[in-house]
């Protein structure tokens, strides 16, 4: 009986977060941005992995918008030392743990849905041949770069086989870095600049009117910065991985072993990122102890 009511609370809260926030285009601006991008690129006639990766990034960082929403009602009550929203949740017949796990669950459902949808979209737009007997060949280019070539046999509609060979593109992020030199110093600089940018963004958003708290805010925004960087790097690599396994639903079915590993890693890393993010938000909300 009691377990039934607890389960009902978890389900209600999860549906509430999904319905009213994460999957509500009015509240989650990412949907609008993604929709505009999809229409734009569709009209353009191409939608490559870079553009889809961009959408993927946007979707994942939309968790930041949740934090932003919570913080909008941040007027701290001097007596309760917590935001009014937190107090509202505390007054409800739900525990902090139930709110936390429900939010986590809804985030996972959202992230898995968005990632799957966008990967399928990518698979559709990349129009890679449906390859059989795939082999990867690594070679070193004159400039020292490692080039990965994929070979395989593709069949036409009339089942006429043809040999296919193409060079895999590099990871988006590392490709970008290698274009600007690729030196360790530059990579470090890139990370530092990205972190500083994200931190300043967070600071401006949260504490624009309280200069005294600047350092404290900088410190607090660290997890957000790290999360965003990790998300960017991780998703870049996911896109590369998707390409390396040949992408395409049929190929996925042929090579379940590799794909399953990639999918598990994808979901796991997304979950870990969300856990870190959710904990930070909920600690700020004082739902969880800091």
């Amino acid at each position: 009986m009691n377990r039934g009511r607890t389960l009902k609370r978890y389900i209600s809260l999860t549906i509430f977060f999904l319905r009213t926030f994460l999957f509500n285009p009015l509240n989650n601006p990412v949907f609008l941005i993604v929709a505009i991008l999809v229409v734009f690129f569709y009209v353009e006639g191409s939608l490559d992995k870079y553009q889809i990766a961009l959408m993927l990034y946007l979707s994942v960082i939309s968790h930041c918008f949740v934090g932003n929403m919570f913080r909008r009602s941040k007027d701290i009550d001097e007596n309760a030392l917590c935001a009014p929203i937190t107090r509202h949740f505390q007054a409800m017949p739900v525990s902090g743990r139930e709110v936390y796990f429900s939010y986590l669950l809804s985030s996972i459902i959202y992230a898995v849905f968005i990632c799957t949808a966008l990967v399928l979209l990518l698979a559709h737009f990349m129009k890679l041949p449906d390859l059989q007997h795939i082999e990867f060949h690594k070679s070193v280019a004159p400039d020292g770069d490692t080039i990965t070539t994929v070979t395989g046999i593709a069949f036409s509609r009339r089942f006429v086989p043809r040999f296919v060979s193409f060079v895999l593109e590099k990871s988006i992020l590392f490709d970008l870095i290698s274009k600007v030199g690729g030196a360790p110093l530059l990579i470090t600089l890139y990370f530092v600049l990205a972190f500083v940018y994200i931190s300043i963004f967070q600071v401006l958003r949260e504490f624009k009117d309280t200069k005294r708290k600047f350092l404290s805010a900088l410190f607090h925004s660290f997890p957000f910065g790290v999360f965003l960087l990790l998300a960017l790097i991780f998703l870049s690599e996911v896109m590369l991985s998707q390409q390396e396994v040949g992408i395409g639903i049929r190929f996925i079915l042929q090579h379940v072993d590799i794909t399953v590993i990639f999918l598990v890693v994808t979901v796991f890393a997304t979950c870990v990122s969300i856990v870190i993010m959710s904990k930070t938000i909920l600690r700020k909300l004082k739902v969880l102890p800091s």
Partner: peptide, 24 residues
């Protein structure tokens, strides 16, 4: 939770979730 179900509380400062409607 069982006790909180029997208590109604309204704070001086509203804490309703800003993104939700009354029906939500």
């Amino acid at each position: 939770a069982a006790t909180k179900e029997r208590i109604g509380f309204v704070a001086e400062e509203t804490g309703l979730l800003p993104w939700a409607t009354l029906m939500d």
